[in-house]
């Protein structure tokens, strides 16, 4: 065995050295890819004409997250011709800047929802969420009719707003205080519909009107 091997042998015989070297080698990839994004993230600020979710839509976002909608629906239109032809202009980083966590998704058992806002009426959404097969007979989407019986926890919603405020979302204390009133008497179904109807409209800069053109799918 070559004499150089003895340096390597030290790693094979000392657990602490092996552990430390492993940790160092593991860190490179994460540091190289994630750190620059943190720096860049400060530049990805929502344009001035985009506001963070209003209370009802934020409650809808939470309903969307808690029911795992991201398991079957993406919110990320890729920069590809056949994607933009189907769903509208490609998604931009600014559009999800207030999403904690992001809901880009990884799988489309159902269609992309990044620009679903305004495409259907509120009533259509309500019927579809209550019983998808009443509107789309061959659909395999689950029924969410029970969302109509679920109230919005206003205290928790205010807590979320306060946490987001601490993380940089431009909510005023007044916004947070009035949130309870804004969701009073609303169900999680109402909130979810309000959230869906804002997608691709309220989170998209007005300076980007192309994004709002809804192509026929």
């Amino acid at each position: 065995m070559s004499s150089r091997y003895k340096y390597f042998e030290a790693i094979e015989k000392h657990a602490w050295l092996l552990g430390i070297l492993t940790a160092i080698f593991l860190s490179f990839g994460g540091l190289a890819e994630v750190l620059p994004l943190f720096v860049a993230a400060n530049k990805v600020e929502a344009p001035e004409d985009v506001e963070p979710y209003d209370p009802l839509r934020l409650a809808g976002f939470e309903t969307y997250v808690q029911n795992g909608c991201y398991v079957c629906h993406s919110q990320m239109i890729r920069h590809l011709g056949f994607e933009t032809a189907r769903y509208g202009q490609h998604s931009t980083a600014e559009e999800s800047v207030y999403d904690r966590p992001m809901q880009w998704g990884s799988k489309r058992t159902g269609p992309d929802l990044a620009r679903v806002g305004g495409k259907y009426t509120d009533e259509w959404h309500r019927e579809h969420l209550k019983d998808p097969r009443s509107v789309v007979p061959s659909s395999n989407m689950p029924r969410y009719n029970w969302l109509e019986d679920k109230d919005i926890d206003a205290k928790r919603l205010q807590g979320s707003m306060r946490a987001m405020q601490r993380l940089g979302a431009p909510y005023t204390d007044e916004d947070i205080e009035q949130a309870a009133k804004a969701v009073e008497g609303k169900t999680q179904m109402d909130a979810l519909i309000a959230y869906l109807q804002g997608l691709g409209i309220k989170n998209t800069p007005k300076s980007n009107p192309k994004a709002k053109e809804v192509p026929a799918s």
Binding site: L37, A41, V97, Y98, M102
Partner: peptide, 11 residues
Amino acid sequence: VPIYSGVVDAM
């Protein structure tokens, strides 16, 4: 509420 949002959260 995750401390990451949007594109950073995705990465």
